[in-house]
């Protein structure tokens, strides 16, 4: 099993190496041929551009959440709210708690619940205007705020309650300087909240902190929930073949190895949604 903490481009010294690994030799030769041709035409960037989308299809981001480590501090919920500046009633990563049994045999169980970015998401197909979709390049399910009409059909279709409607409500702090700091979500495109303007009136959901990716789709920082977790319970990484489970949050850790070494579950597996978030027990 290829090991450890490699992020897709880490350890790949040259463009040839990167492309070779991702696409195979044949594709590289084709690209080289194209490269020679276009370089002759004086446009090397075009070659890089042709290569980039292919490279990006290789990523499959996901999480392994270690329930033995989670202490129910809810720092992930708070960190997510602060990172994305979500309004009241929009909570991308709540911690779900249940109390089971009666005194003296009472038990509590809990788990953080971000969007699972399912491989077969039931929420995207129902959108009447294709506003929500699973990104081909990295498997992240997002909502295009400019297209979403706010019908909320996707909220009904998500079996995990991972979608929220933005009612346009604000925290009291909205009228202070806090309200002037734009949300970085989607690279700040919808940063400042304006009445009636997107994302108000849209459906919102966890984006795996998409805005922390660089132009090549690599994370410059792990998503806020996993970065903040003091118990190191939330492991975020790339399941795709190249990085093969490399964890972005914790150095020396590998998501696939965690799954091999622990018993794990995914919620409502019977629905066939193939969540990208695993819980180890």
């Amino acid at each position: 099993m290829p090991t450890e903490t490699e992020t897709p481009v880490k350890g790949a010294a040259t463009l040839e190496e990167v492309v070779n690994r991702q696409l195979g030799r044949r594709a590289f030769l084709k690209l080289t041929g194209l490269g020679v041709f276009t370089a002759a035409a004086g446009s090397l960037p075009a070659v890089l551009e042709a290569a980039t989308p292919k490279l990006r299809t290789q990523r499959r981001y996901g999480m392994v959440i270690d329930l033995k480590r989670c202490v129910n501090c809810k720092a992930c919920t708070i960190a997510c709210k602060l990172e994305n500046k979500t309004p009241p009633g929009v909570v991308y990563n709540p911690v779900i708690e249940e109390e089971i049994g009666e005194y003296p045999y009472v038990q509590r169980r809990w788990f953080p619940k971000p969007c699972f970015h399912c491989d077969k998401p039931p929420c995207t197909g129902v959108c009447p205007v294709t506003a929500t979709y699973k990104r081909k390049e990295d498997g992240i399910v997002i909502v295009d705020y400019d297209k979403c009409i706010g019908c909320r059909y996707c909220i009904t279709a998500c079996p995990y309650g991972a979608r929220f409607f933005d009612f346009g409500e604000n925290y009291p702090a909205h009228t202070t300087a806090y309200g002037q700091v734009p949300s970085p979500e989607f690279q700040g495109e919808y940063g400042l909240r304006r009445e009636g303007k997107s994302p108000v009136g849209n459906v919102r959901k966890c984006t795996f902190c998409l805005h922390l990716q660089d132009a090549q789709g690599r994370y410059t920082r792990p998503p806020a929930c996993s970065e903040t977790c003091m118990a190191k319970a939330i492991h975020f990484g790339d399941f795709a073949s190249e990085s093969n489970g490399g964890c972005i949050t914790h150095e020396g850790c590998n998501l696939k190895r965690l799954l091999v070494e622990h018993r794990w579950i995914r919620l409502k597996e019977e629905l066939g949604t193939e969540p990208s978030v695993y819980y180890t027990l």
Binding site: T77, P94, I96, E97, E98, K113, C158, Y160, G161, L267
Partner: peptide, 9 residues
């Protein structure tokens, strides 16, 4: 849709 989701927040 998940037990406890309505109590989470």
């Amino acid at each position: 849709i998940l037990p406890g989701l309505d109590q989470a927040v």
